[in-house]
Amino acid sequence: MLVRRSIARIGYRFGCNLLPLLPNWPGEVVFIKLLNQRLSEELQDGLFDFLDSKVLEVSVTDLGVCLRISKRDAYFVRAPTDAPADSTISASICDFLAIASGKEDPDTLFFQRRLCLGGQTEIGLTVKNRLDALDRSRIPQWAQRWLEMTAAELAAIVPN
């Protein structure tokens, strides 16, 4: 328990210092690949068509990471670097993980100003609702456990 918390603390500090110095594109490539794999059925069903030619910018504020996502045909793609964002979502890594692991309600975080929406609200809100509607049982058990554990460890060491 203590060891895990120390690792989380070191990892988090390391991430906060190092990640802002690195380019965003490797993270974008990996994240978008993961999204395309996991959400292929939803993409085929047209559930993310509202992102066609739009730019969604997801910023992890404390890690200085910014992922810019768009969609073409039935795939998420990296957004062109010169295109301004149509919608922005930003929060700390802690709060993103709490949302992803199903522990926190995004609206609650939004009311508390911990999750920020910018640009076209409809895009941000629809993204939130679409992600809420995903069947969590499709996330592999180990990944769910990892998410929950990491979210809990970070919540314990990072102040809101």
């Binding site: 926190e104 995004p106 609206d107 609650t108 609702n129 809420d132």
Partner: peptide, 10 residues
């Protein structure tokens, strides 16, 4: 109904 599963659960 506009809130997430996390809200509903709690």
């Amino acid at each position: 109904r506009q809130r997430s599963p996390a809200y509903v659960a709690q």
